[in-house]
Design a protein around this nucleic acid. Structure first.
Length: 416
RNA sequence: GUGGGCAUAGCUCAGUUUGGUUAGAGCAUCAGAUUGUGGCUCUGAGGGUCGUGGGUUCGAGUCCCAUUGCCCACCCCA
């Protein structure tokens, strides 16, 4: 019997890892530039956090959570999203009393029990940010600019920003009633899925892909026309800010996201390079979440973005990810004594930060040359019988093939 | 969770229609092409229980069933 990775998971092997290192570095550097600090929370939480925070009617909580009982009978869930854990840590450590505003970022695995397909895993990696403590419109704009800023550095240019406002809960509730009334009159023409959603989560009918549903919802009441004046003003300010920031956006009344905690601003980044799972990232404002999970009424906004999907888009746009430093010196050794000399020299060179490699299979000269060439070594240092006698090795520059005799302890001066 | 397709060497795939001797190619790997010199070229070698388990048959990579995995769409999302 052969072992294989669990369904919906992946291994990242050496030829791919430089992409991840690069993306992670860009994220950390850019987050620092925007003055966000990293937060790490456990891989799992008590299940009730997500039920309370995210909402039991959402698909993520309702059917996609990795939930299990631990040995003492507590219900544990591998985190399917990061906003609720961050809010929990924020409340648990009473951070609100230490400073009025907190800006967090994270890079972490997420777990959702779904049917895997391209760009969709059961364990995937997201980076994201959360701003807690202000509902300033500029924090909305800053978050969206930040995402774009990071995308552009990692080769993700081909994407659209969709934006909408879901208003505050009271307005949304009233709007949903209007929507239900409207849809009830067209019920017989709705898809089966949407008939079901009419009872469970009517907003979701707005983003149905069924042509009939789209036709019907085209003339449905629009949420943006039924919001409180404060929400409308704020939405306009956000949009204005995006224009000033030079970010192209598309107002999309069909954009309703899969978490119950959103209020006012919601947004999504989509790319046509992803196929059917076309969202690279998304987020929104959640001004009621902190109090929902037992904190003070503190507003927040955040986003999450899938790193697998970002790399996928970058690859499909032929983005070249910078790779690490290549080998500086490959030691070619032709006998046992030479190996000992090489071993001593390598110890020294590595202390000075020179990247070295050597043959550990006792292979032929030619094979060692090929190996050095394959790993793109800048230099080769050859030690054979003659060189041992002279106490000088042959330093060969691979780019032009030139080679000179260099004493054993003189290598470092000659490879600049 | 629902529907459709695919599974042959490390990778990309022929071979399946019309079951029939030791299952092939390219790339990759390794080794050679006169003494101790890489990239290009040439030659050769290793590597597969044909996803797994049953069944039909004198005989199965090829037909049938089941199972697992992957892909596509729906659902949903990153």
């Amino acid at each position: 019997m052969k072992f294989q990775k669990p369904k919906g998971t992946k291994d990242i092997l050496p030829p791919e890892i430089h992409k991840w290192h690069f993306v992670e570095k860009v994220i950390r550097d850019t987050m620092d530039l925007y003055n966000f600090s990293e937060i790490r929370t456990p891989m799992f939480e008590n299940t009730t956090l997500f039920k309370r925070g995210v909402g039991t009617e959402t698909d993520i909580v309702g059917k996609e959570m990795y939930t299990f009982e631990d040995k003492s009978g507590n219900s544990i869930t591998l985190k399917p999203e990061m906003t609720a854990p961050v809010a929990r840590a924020f409340v648990e450590h009473n951070l609100a009393s230490q400073a009025p505003i907190h800006k967090f970022f994270y890079i972490t695995s997420m777990f959702r029990y779904e049917k895997p397909q391209e760009g969709r895993y059961r364990e995937h990696t997201q980076f994201g940010a959360e701003v807690l403590g202000t509902n300033d419109v500029y924090s909305d704009i800053e978050i969206i600019s930040l995402v774009k800023h990071i995308y552009n550095q990692v080769g993700v240019h081909n994407f659209k920003v969709k934006i909408n406002s879901l208003g505050m809960p009271d307005d949304r509730r009233k709007y949903i009633e209007l929507l239900i009334n409207y849809l009830n009159n067209h019920q017989e023409h709705l898809s089966n899925d949407s008939k079901r959603r009419l009872v469970i989560n009517p907003l979701r009918i707005l983003d149905s892909k069924d042509p009939n549903d789209i036709e019907i919802t085209e003339h449905a009441p629009k949420i943006l026309e039924h919001l409180d004046i404060a929400s409308i003003v704020r939405f306009e300010k956000v949009i204005n800010g995006l224009t000033i920031a030079g970010i192209d956006y598309e107002v999309d009344f069909r954009l309703v996201r899969g978490f119950d905690y959103y209020t006012d601003t919601t947004f999504e980044f989509i790319s046509e390079d992803l196929g059917s799972q076309n969202a690279i990232g998304g987020g929104g404002r959640y001004d009621k979440l902190v109090e929902t999970i037992g904190g003070k009424p503190i507003p927040g906004i955040g986003f999450g973005s899938g790193i697998e999907r970002m790399i996928m888009v970058a690859d499909r746009n032929n983005f070249i990810f910078p790779s690490g430093k290549s080998v500086d010196v490959y030691f070619i050794t032709l006998n046992e004594e030479a190996k000992l000399v090489a071993f001593k020299e390598i110890l020294n060179l590595r202390k000075s930060g020179i990247k070295c490699e050597y043959d550990s299979l006792g292979r032929s000269f030619k094979a060692q040359m090929r190996e050095a060439n394959k790993m793109n070594s800048r230099f080769v240092y050859i030690i054979g019988d003659e060189e041992i006698t002279k106490q000088k090795g042959l330093l060969k520059k691979m780019s032009d093939g030139s080679q000179t005799e260099i004493s054993f302890n003189n290598i470092i001066e000659n490879i600049k």
